[in-house]
């Protein structure tokens, strides 16, 4: 097997300012980790309701998704406590549908994780990454890239509890 180059994200990227997550767990790419005990089962794709809160003009036709519920950070109050405040981390709710709620927390990962994905080889090599190395990436087959390095996760380790609407 030939050696597979692993590309890195550009070193200085601005934060996605529209990221709705609490500041601490935001990443430049807008990715975050959500861990739950159990699996999110979606109904079959035909029954999928259209996304409710997304601007459709942004979406390609093929992109479809099923709403799960909402994430609530009850103690997150940057205007009062500042963005550096971490006390909000100990409580996060995930409302699933209308009647279920998971209680969890935001946790710093013991070891940060890199999000890997296959790099599309047809596209022209990313100039930021490739200029400082030998430009021999075109002829190689598979390449991987680190999309993001994530240092926190939102963890729901318990079982869902019933809630009123």
């Amino acid at each position: 097997m030939p050696a597979v180059p692993l590309h890195l994200p550009p070193s200085c990227r601005p934060l996605a300012v529209s990221n709705p997550l609490p500041h601490l767990i935001q990443t430049p790419s807008g990715l975050a980790l959500l861990e739950i005990q159990g699996t999110l089962h979606t109904s079959s794709n035909q029954n999928a309701t259209p996304p409710q809160s997304l601007d459709h003009s942004l979406e390609e036709d093929a992109v479809q998704e099923t709403p799960i519920g909402r994430l609530v950070f009850p103690y997150y109050n940057p205007s009062l406590l500042g963005e550096e405040d971490v006390s909000w981390m100990k409580r996060v709710y995930l409302y699933v549908g209308k009647h279920q709620r998971l209680t969890g927390e935001a946790k710093k990962l013991g070891k940060p994780v890199a999000v890997l994905r296959k790099k599309a080889t047809q596209e022209k090599p990313d100039s930021v990454v490739d200029t400082e190395h030998e430009g021999g990436s075109e002829q190689r087959g598979e390449e991987l890239e680190i999309v993001e390095i994530i240092k926190f996760k939102i963890l729901f380790s318990g079982r869902p509890e019933p809630v009123d609407e």
Partner: peptide, 20 residues
């Protein structure tokens, strides 16, 4: 309260996580 809606995409991407 910071409240964010969560959805699941039908076509899931093939991503891996690597501990650093």
């Amino acid at each position: 309260f910071a409240e964010i809606s969560l959805a699941i995409a039908h076509s899931q991407q093939n991503l891996r996580l690597l501990e650093l």
